[in-house]
Design a protein around this nucleic acid. Structure first.
Lengths: 154, 154
DNA sequence: ACAACAATGCGCATCGGCGTACCGAGAGAA
DNA sequence: TTCTCTCGGTACGCCGATGCGCATTGTTGT
């Protein structure tokens, strides 16, 4: 069954995705509804599983993570145990914020943050050293976030 | 001046990054503090600019964005007007969630979501058609999120 | 060592926002 | 028309956020 959303629902999702610290009254003003109606619709959206969670976005720079990388990794083998070992290692490294299994040239893309070049060098060494199946590692550093993460185009 | 954080502050940041819907009392239980002390520390963290904002994470699948891509783009020229035009176009396309200017082989990396293959084909066409300076476009589809976005390792 | 001050945690009081119950308006079917 | 279903608004009780005063601890200077 396909989920149908009214324009009001989509407005609420946009508003809440952008800023979840608003009070219901403020949210109501934004989307053009009373606080209680807003609350009801938002609750319904949560119950239907459209909202995965609420969280704070921390300031990467302020916290000293000056560098950000997208690392492409290819493995020598796509056999199950090799992938399994790689993925478990990835999940255990906190500097790796994200990991995607890819279709295309590379097998994986990782998003990584580091405090400085030294930390990156160490992480890089750790990646290649710890994981036996690695065939190729291409690191690409982000120079500037042209468009910082924007929410889903609801 | 370097910002110094106590272990308590880091605990609060971790907790709030993971889930900002908790009450102060709950947050206090998590980090081992009273609600009022928690509130004061959190307020201080906000005032010092360590928290960029609060937001809801929407469920990509539920909202019908079945596909996710990382697109690498190279331009024929790195001249300022070309970059400028490209970046403005990127910012105007809502399906492009993120855009980074990169050091390395490719000039840009885009993160893109699409409802289906058709929508992706159209977006792809739009990208290459609209932007005169494009030399190369490599699309990589994410098959599986091995590690979904985890917060900064505070 | 001790005094003074800063830092920080806790408890309490107050006030505002959340969540619910109820009411009314509008649309659609019989 | 009238019944009903949906949905938004209003009213209100209660919980949680927020600010304050006090206590305790740690640090610094003499």
């Amino acid at each position: 069954m396909k989920i149908q959303l009214s324009e009001l629902d989509r407005k609420i999702l946009r508003a809440v995705q952008d800023n979840s610290a608003r009070s219901m009254a403020e949210l109501g003003n934004v989307v053009g509804l009373s606080a209680s109606a807003c609350h009801r619709r938002l609750k319904s959206l949560e119950d239907r599983g459209l909202i995965a969670g609420y969280g704070a976005t921390l300031d990467r720079r302020q916290l000293g993570f000056a560098m950000q990388f997208f690392i492409e990794v290819s493995l020598v083998s796509q056999s199950e145990p090799v992938l399994e070992a790689f993925e478990n290692a990835v999940r255990a490294i906190p500097e790796i914020l994200e990991c995607h299994l890819m279709a295309g040239q590379s097998d994986y893309i990782l998003r990584v943050v580091c405090r400085d070049a030294e930390a990156f060098a160490q992480l890089h060494r750790e990646l290649v050293a710890r994981l036996p199946g690695i065939a190729r590692v291409h690191s690409n550093m982000s120079i500037r976030e042209v468009k910082p993460y924007a929410g889903l185009p609801v």
